[in-house]
Amino acid sequence: MFLINCPYCGERDQQEFKAGGEAHIERPKQPTELSDDEWAEYLFMRKNIKGVQFERWNHAHGCRKWFNMVRDTSNDEIKAIYKMGEKPPSQ
């Protein structure tokens, strides 16, 4: 059970949060211009890394804010947490 440092509320138990999958996948600005393959790339393809992964999390049972997390999926170490729109920390 992680202890997650919500950038708006501070440290809270994992059960207050919802994981939202891989981060930094921007919704295409002009979806209609994309081929089926390009759209599928955005829609379906995710990296699912074993190791350091950039993820979206939501403080669903708290402030309801979304934020980003850098997590090592092999040992669940949370390496960084930063707000939406902020640049990811360099590795």
């Binding site: 939202g20 921007e26 979206r56 939501n58 669903a60 979304w66 729109g85």
Partner: peptide
Amino acid sequence: LGKLEDYLQTEWP
């Protein structure tokens, strides 16, 4: 509500 918040906060801030 969760889905709408998601788009508002992350895609269309």
